[in-house]
Structure formats: structure tokens, C-alpha cells
């Protein structure tokens, strides 16, 4: 059986967690290729519509970080 690789969408705040992900990148931290970053200007921007549409499109998990 193929290994389950959950597709995760991370909604990251430009000012903190997106910046942190940049630093993680600069430190060459390993990330699974099934993790996807979407930049937003504040984690408070995320509404139910965005979350549901993300699941409907096939995401296995969502990370809202800010």
C-alpha cells in the first residue's frame, strides 16, 4: 500500500509565521512536499468559506498559524 502523505495547507501570517517559515527555509529545515504555504496578511483573515473550500478541494489538514 502507498504511504499516506496528508496534503496540508498552511495559512501563514505574513508578519510572523510566514516569516518564521522563511527562517526555517533559510536553516534548510526539511519539509514534506505535501505541505503547502498560502500567505495571508493576518491569520484573522481566515474565514469559514476559505477553510471549507480548502477541505472540499481535497486537503487532508489545514494549519492556520499566526
Amino acid at each position: 500500500m502507498e504511504e499516506f502523505k496528508p496534503k496540508i495547507v498552511g495559512f501563514l501570517c505574513n508578519w510572523c509565521t510566514y516569516a518564521a517559515a522563511d527562517m526555517a527555509g533559510a536553516a534548510k529545515t526539511k519539509l514534506p512536499s505535501s505541505f503547502n504555504v498560502v500567505r495571508i496578511m493576518c491569520s484573522g483573515r481566515v474565514d469559514h468559506n476559505l477553510l471549507l473550500t480548502t477541505f472540499f478541494n481535497g486537503a487532508d489538514g489545514i494549519l492556520v498559524a499566526g
Partner: peptide
């Protein structure tokens, strides 16, 4: 910042350049 977008119960706020259709 788009915080109002996330808070509006009737989905009536658009945050320009970060609209739902764009993020979708």
C-alpha cells in the same frame, strides 16, 4: 489585515488582493 473578513457572519467583506477567489 483582513481580520474583519474572518469575523463577518454574512461574508460581506472583501480584502482586496487577498480575496477568497484569489486564495482559492
Amino acid at each position: 489585515c483582513g481580520n474583519c473578513v474572518g469575523s463577518c457572519p454574512s461574508g460581506s467583506i472583501r480584502s482586496k488582493h487577498f480575496t477568497n477567489p484569489q486564495l482559492f
